[in-house]
């Protein structure tokens, strides 16, 4: 028996039962029936037609006017049937888009992939999680010829696919920088020219670029309007803001960036982040810097990667598992 015959038989039984006893049970059967027909993509006009033919079969003496009335109902339901089919087709299209998006996200991950370097004397942790499929945040580690550890963290103003496409370009601009890297301020100046020339004028990028020299344990850094990071001083157990000022990438191709430096003593930490961390919205508003520091202190006895992972988990729960912005957090600690 094919589905249509089965459907007719099932509907006939439900109808007969209901006409006999008008019970809630039969109505419930009707609801279940609609679930099957929806699964089989049966349009509403077919149900109307089935109803009409069964009525005539069960009650041959049914007045003509009643039967005719179903023609109007059928015609009206036709429009709903057309809308129903359109809905089906749009739903399929949405699934296709979703699959495409997932593939794109994987491609992006491969493109933007960076590995956290294993450097003696340093404990590094990093995590970047997109709010949607595609990530508009980016971080990058490179150990250059002089054994300096270069770290970049960037955020495209904007989210989703446009931001992600833009980020891929930044990644390639960084890859084409010379092997023996220049000072951070010069790196930003060169990236700024690339962004200014190639990116839509409405799109801006913030970036923090740091270069850690393991010889003198000093970090040299510059910022292009990026969310300021923190510096943790082990001796005083105090956190301070990593002060750095600079214009966003892509505004003016002649922008010059200042370079700052800070000596890193054993146990000191450098904490870098995207605004997805500080703009994490809680019920009481944005996350205060003090609160974020509180989270870092809570896990400070752990390794850098564990601190990063735990803070992400806590903030994720705080936002009821719905990230509003891409989240990136990096912690670099000089081992004691």
């Amino acid at each position: 028996m094919d589905f249509r015959e089965k459907m007719e038989q099932e509907y006939r039984e439900i109808l007969i039962n209901y006409l006999k006893n008008q019970s809630e049970q039969s109505l419930y059967q009707g609801q279940l029936f609609s679930r099957h027909t929806l699964e089989q993509k049966i349009s509403p006009e077919e149900i109307v037609s089935l109803h009409k033919s069964l009525l005539l079969e069960l009650y041959p003496e049914v007045p003509e006017s009643v039967l005719h009335s179903f023609d109007i109902l059928l015609e009206v339901m036709m429009g709903y049937g057309v809308a129903y089919r359109e809905h089906q087709s749009l739903r399929n299209k949405q699934m296709e888009l979703r699959t495409e998006m997932e593939i794109a996200a994987n491609v992006q991950q491969t493109l933007l992939g960076t590995s956290i370097p294993d450097v003696e004397g340093l404990d590094i942790g990093a995590l970047s999680v997109p709010a949607k499929h595609m990530n508009g945040d980016y971080f990058h580690f490179v150990v250059d010829e002089n054994n300096c550890i270069n770290v970049a963290i960037a955020d495209v103003i904007g989210k989703g696919i446009p931001a992600a496409l833009c980020m891929s370009m930044i990644k390639y601009a960084m890859d084409s920088l010379p092997e023996n890297r220049n000072a951070p301020n010069l790196v930003l100046e060169s990236l700024n020219r690339v962004v200014e020339q190639n990116v839509d004028p409405s799109m801006f990028i913030t970036m923090f670029y740091g270069m850690y020299n393991p010889e003198n344990h000093t970090i040299y850094y510059s910022s292009a309007g990026h969310e300021p990071g923190f510096f943790f001083q082990k001796e005083t157990e105090e956190f301070s803001e990593l002060e750095a000022r600079g214009l966003l990438l892509g505004i003016d191709k002649k922008t010059k960036y200042l370079q700052f430096e800070k000596e890193v003593l054993p146990g000191d930490m450098i904490i870098l982040m995207s605004d997805g961390v500080t703009e994490c919205r809680t019920e009481e508003g944005f996350l205060e810097k003090e609160e974020l520091i509180g989270y870092i202190r809570k896990y400070i006895h752990l390794s850098a990667q564990e601190i990063v992972n735990n803070i992400y988990k806590d903030l994720e729960r705080l936002q009821h598992f719905q990230l509003r912005d891409d989240f990136t957090l990096i912690i670099i600690r000089r081992n004691v």
């Binding site: 429009g79 057309v82 809308a83 089919r85 359109e86 087709s89 749009l90 299209k93």
Partner: peptide, 20 residues
């Protein structure tokens, strides 16, 4: 294309005709 209709109305449109 589904969902495109210059009149903005809820008519079947050409994709609707194609499916019928």
């Amino acid at each position: 294309e589904d969902g495109f209709s210059t009149s903005g109305g809820l008519g079947a449109g050409l994709p609707g005709v194609k499916r019928l």
